[in-house]
Design a protein around this nucleic acid. Structure first.
Lengths: 326, 326
DNA sequence: CTGTTAGCGCGTTCAA
DNA sequence: TTGAACGCGCTAACAG
């Protein structure tokens, strides 16, 4: 029976047919739990992300789902809400449930993470950033480079006073890395670096609004803002509009991600376009390669990005200098 | 051993401690597959939705996840992309994997669905609409009522020519039901019903744009548009802006869902606010009640909604009648 | 109260 | 080539 269903060799045609007809008649379904118990395989991939209701992450999942489906895997989904304890809890659940692999978008990489991944042998792929010096396979865009490019673009547009709304403190990718790219671009152009034009906040509209408020309430104001997420960019623009600034007339704003609505928003957002679905599919393929013990070509897989120039930015040469901007 | 771990009665303190200390030392983890094989329980809930990268659905999942977590369940996530075959495929996988329960957001309810659910005994809760005359437990907002309320609001605003951008043909909730509510409100007010002011399309920005194009290219144009999703509303406004209409100056637009960005968009969207997280938590609780064989009070659970009036609508009395609107 | 054993439904091994 | 027995790791039932 088992031999027929699993396409073993050395089975006579006759027996095969006989078994299959009985299978058909009795509507027999193999018990996947029992099978898993013997095979030590569950055909289940654990996906752990900070939150689902963020377009970026949900698109990652769509990508993962697409290839997982093709290979007969299903997805066990969990969300950490950026909570370290929860994250480790779920990782342990993944182990207990004997999942075949894990795809993970962490923000922070603590010592506890480290010791966890040293202990476990479950194939794992990280998304969103390189971790522990590239010890584990990962898929991401090059955040430093992307951020550098966005900043350079503003510099080419003759902006000299550029603020950045980076991700929260613990977030390496959208915080540290993107801040780094921004600083590199500024240094490269010999522009002054002003710590007061740098904020580290969550990627929400509200936080973007607050960040803009904080930056614009200072004596010296920037002429351009580079927000490390479209959400923060939208929040910032909202603040600017409410306080009488025109975008891009008075201030240019660049976002990050190119969410659905970035091109519908007024003004249409200039932003770095990531392709999260690609990140997801690549991560899933990498994971399945690992599960099947195929050699992995590269630990680090960088997914292309590109700057999409729309209407929220303007060359500083072209704007009539407003008098409230000293 | 088993008795200790499962908190059976009649275990001496001494044995308990002895066992637990060994468990501690050897870092013993029970094999959940073997346990499931015996207990016929997986502590896994299958969630099947049309797509993840839609804020409405991802919030549903967040709600489900929240209560599932509290009860020790994990989520097996699948997406149907509104594809009937895929949907049935996944439902069968859910059965094969012996999930403890299913939460499902279908758009269509075919005969194949029907026969599937007549055969299976897995506890199931539907989200988004009542199905098969309320035979199965479901959680939703009252789409007819909500749509009626939105339309009534426009009527109270003195609009007489009101168009509707409804959901796709096969979609009962955002298509049929919302169209029905719209029609009821019009009849109630003795307003003319114009089939040319009704479209049935997907809930995307692009489709909203196209729908608006279709409606506004006619001889007689409406003065208000009720879009059955914020996405369509945004697309419609985009079209209107591009073609010289002011919103709400020339045309009022009402949306549906109150997505994140509805309040940031210009003009801020008047829309029906659903609470998808509540729908998710309620569905999950209902499902767990069913799994634990607790009696379910109501098959139908209606989650409240409310109309949020912002800036995309205006009383028709207050607008200067433009000459292009005959 | 506790040690032992049967059996959950598979895949695999060992004879035949 | 194939049938039968064994064991995956657990829980439940049965003795003791």
């Amino acid at each position: 029976m088992s031999r027929v269903l699993n396409n073993s060799k050395h089975v006579s045609e006759e027996l095969k047919e006989r078994v299959l007809s009985v299978v058909e008649e009795t509507n027999f379904k193999p018990n996947l739990l029992a099978r898993g118990l013997v095979n030590k395989k569950t055909n289940l991939i654990g996906v752990l992300i900070p939150r689902i209701s963020n377009n970026f992450f949900s698109q990652l999942i769509e990508g993962i789902n697409e290839v997982a489906e093709n290979y007969g895997y299903n997805i066990l989904l969990s969300t950490s809400y950026n909570n370290l304890q929860k994250e480790l809890e779920y990782l342990n659940i993944f182990v207990d449930r004997q999942l075949d692999g894990i795809i993970l978008a962490v923000t922070d990489f603590s010592d506890q993470h480290k010791s966890f991944f040293e202990k476990t042998t479950i194939p794992t792929v990280f998304m969103g950033q390189q971790l522990d010096k590239g010890k584990y396979p990962y898929v991401t865009i090059d955040n430093v480079k992307a951020s550098c490019e966005a900043t350079r673009f503003l510099i080419n547009q003759k902006h000299q006073k550029i603020a950045i709304l980076a991700g929260p403190d613990f977030d390496i990718a959208t915080g540290d890395n993107r801040l780094q790219g921004y600083l590199e671009a500024l240094k490269e152009a010999n522009l002054p670096i002003n710590p007061r034009w740098q904020t580290r906040r969550y990627h929400t509209i509200e936080d973007g609004y607050q960040a803009a408020a904080q930056i614009m309430s200072q004596q010296e104001r920037p002429t351009a803002i580079f927000a490390c997420s479209d959400q923060q960019a939208l929040g910032a623009i909202n603040y600017l509009h409410e306080h009488g600034y025109d975008v891009p007339g008075d201030i240019s704003v660049v976002g990050f991600d190119d969410i659905d609505l970035a091109s519908v928003f007024k003004p249409k957002l200039t932003t770095i376009k990531q392709n999260p679905v690609d990140i997801g599919t690549t991560a899933a393929r990498l994971l399945i390669d690992q599960i099947k013990e195929r050699p992995i070509p590269f630990k680090g897989n960088y997914i292309p990005f590109r700057l999409v120039v729309r209407e929220s930015t303007k060359s500083w040469n072209d704007v009539e200098k407003p008098n409230y901007n000293q």
